[in-house]
Nucleic acid binder design. Structure first.
Lengths: 135, 135
DNA sequence: GTAGCTGCAAACTCTTTGCAACTCT
DNA sequence: AGAGTTGCAAAGAGTTTGCAGCTAC
């Protein structure tokens, strides 16, 4: 039983075949798949999975914070496993998503919120850029 | 003719009654109204405006960059006039939106993108927080 | 006069949900 | 056995669009 499956079981979820497949898809994803993506990949393993189950499972995983739901400005959601904290730079020409971390940024965010009289609970930072062309 | 109307005319838009009303609503908004909000406020001035026109007008204004379209994590869009550059902190308890600017942040964003090999074209930063309670 | 704009209703996209059947535990 | 889960299809929310008539220029 994978660590992910274990965490689901601990949270009280029944470990069904469909869930196992979806978790596997997420675990082996190296990108930030949309619901459609997860659905397509899951179907390659088990033809019978329905998209409603994918939606329901992803929602549950989001509630358990095992997964992070992103809404890059595309009109739908993308998901990724919740591991190390990081941000995203979206390549406007290719749609590629580059992950990054920055310590200064983390500190600055907290400071800004604090200066405004708030405790930072959550945040969202996305950069949208174009690759610098080498001459 | 307001400055906003003028900028629309210059961009080649016909200045219809509906557009004038919508621009007025945006111009006098002190918040970040949703499409519904704009629609409701516009209807108070002109009963006959349809929501399709509000959607179409806001899209146009967004293309012209006269307006900024936000998608805070709510499942719909909010708009504001595009004036000075700033970011938003959303109060998780009240939904209130606090605007802020931060020079260090601006520099840092550009630097991060550049270090990753990208020219920063656009970005999105939102903080979600809870007001610090005074004792 | 005519290109562009409007209201209306239908269509679209993404997501959620009611329900009866099924399946983990 | 029974609560939780599933697939299906229908419904929802927000947004877009085709069309015939209207209007600013």
């Amino acid at each position: 039983m994978s660590e992910l499956e274990q965490r689901c079981t601990e949270a009280g979820l029944k470990m069904t075949g469909q869930r196992r497949v979806i978790l596997k898809v997420l675990d082996s994803a190296e990108d930030h798949p949309s619901v459609e993506d997860v659905y397509d990949r899951a179907r390659k393993i088990d033809e019978s999975i329905s998209i409603a189950t994918v939606y329901r499972t992803l929602s549950l995983l989001d509630e358990l914070e095992l997964v992070i739901r992103h809404e890059f400005q595309e009109g739908y959601s993308r998901y990724e496993l919740n591991s190390d904290h990081h941000h995203h730079l979206i390549d406007l020409e290719t749609g590629k998503v580059v992950e990054f971390q920055n310590e200064d940024l983390e500190k600055l965010k907290i400071k800004i919120a604090h200066d405004l009289g708030y405790d930072l609970v959550d945040h969202r930072l996305e950069l949208y850029g174009k690759r610098i062309k080498k001459k």
